[in-house]
């Protein structure tokens, strides 16, 4: 077990390192960042030189990468090019609560919808509910989230006028973005819970519980769900990881002022420090979530750690 965890930790570390190398080398592919962000003509060459030295752009690449990595570990990605005076990390942290709120709401929605639906569809296998559940699972995984977002926005905000179109505000602002973000994972969790429940429903101890005369709801929701919970539980981490990248699209659709929108905006502003901060932070969360899944799974299911 310890060896397994150690290996997975090293792999996760290498993955994060790979991301940092990709991000760093891509950022330097574009040539000199200074020429792209400086207004044309009215800047003295000496000023550019001074800035170049200040930002360390006159150093050889591998030294720049070393400095980049050293600072990145401390959360220092330099000053934002687009918002003068702000640090890139500061910009990200400023936007982080909005993203956290959105992802949290989506997580709650996923649990509240996906888990019970998974249980019910398993209990009523091949029934009407199961059929609907299959449709939800299929649609949820086939509709791109920005299409869903635009569709919802048109129907509920423009056509019916029930919800605000975009932006961040009260609970009503949160409903559509959170649902848009959640639907894909609702479908995934539904399928996962359903198949896990089906496996457990078929076992001897459930038959035993029924024979003993335990009420059916208690058999399903307590005895079964508790045993079927391993797969959905480990999947939570994947859900969280995917939300932090899914928000990039959803926040753009709904003008939600979070980290994802910041990332897209900094692409257009060619604000590399901010983009680097977002990508490295986002990838780290994603990789850490994957790592957590593997460890949880190995902890809960001994067959994996010994293979």
């Amino acid at each position: 077990m310890q060896r397994f965890i150690l290996i997975r930790f090293i792999q996760a570390f290498v993955a994060i390192l790979a991301v940092s190398i990709i991000v760093f080398s891509l950022s330097h592919l574009s040539g000199d960042p200074l020429t792209t962000i400086m207004p044309m003509g009215d800047v003295e060459p000496e000023d550019i030189e001074a800035l170049r030295v200040k930002w360390g752009l006159d150093q050889p690449l591998h030294i720049q990468y070393g400095v980049f990595l050293k600072n990145a570990v401390r959360g220092d990605f330099g000053e934002s090019y687009a918002f003068g005076g702000q640090t890139a990390m500061g910009m990200v942290l400023l936007r982080f609560p909005a993203t956290l709120q959105l992802a949290g709401a989506a997580l709650v929605l996923t649990l509240v919808i996906g888990l019970p639906l998974g249980v019910i569809t398993a209990v009523r296998k091949d029934g009407w509910v199961d059929y609907q559940g299959k449709a939800i699972a299929f649609l949820g995984q086939a509709i791109p989230n920005f299409c869903l977002g635009i569709g919802l926005m048109w129907f509920f905000a423009v056509w019916l006028g029930w919800l605000p179109t975009s932006g961040r505000g009260g609970i009503d602002h949160l409903i559509m973005p959170a649902f848009t973000l959640a639907l894909f994972q609702v479908a995934a969790l539904l399928r996962l819970t359903r198949s896990a429940m089906l496996d457990v429903l078929d076992t001897e101890f459930i038959k035993m519980a029924r024979i003993k005369g335990i009420p059916e709801w208690k058999v399903v929701w307590k005895h079964c769900l508790r045993n079927a919970f391993i797969a959905p539980l480990t999947y939570f981490a994947i859900i969280i990881g995917s939300f932090f990248t899914g928000t990039v699209v959803v926040e753009t659709v709904f003008s939600w002022p979070g980290v994802g929108q910041l990332a897209v905006n900094s692409v257009f502003a060619r604000d590399f420090p901010t983009l680097q901060a977002v990508v490295i932070l986002g990838s780290s969360i994603y990789i850490a979530a994957n790592l957590l899944v593997d460890i949880l799974y190995a902890y809960l299911d001994p067959r994996i750690r010994y293979s």
Binding site: Q11, V23, L26, T245, G282
Partner: peptide
């Protein structure tokens, strides 16, 4: 297989954004 692991654990959209900013 280590390359596969790395590739599977990196978020696609984020790398695409960096690429778009650069090129």
């Amino acid at each position: 297989m280590r390359l596969v692991d790395i590739s599977l654990s990196i978020s696609l959209v984020l790398i695409a954004l960096v690429l778009a900013a650069v090129r």
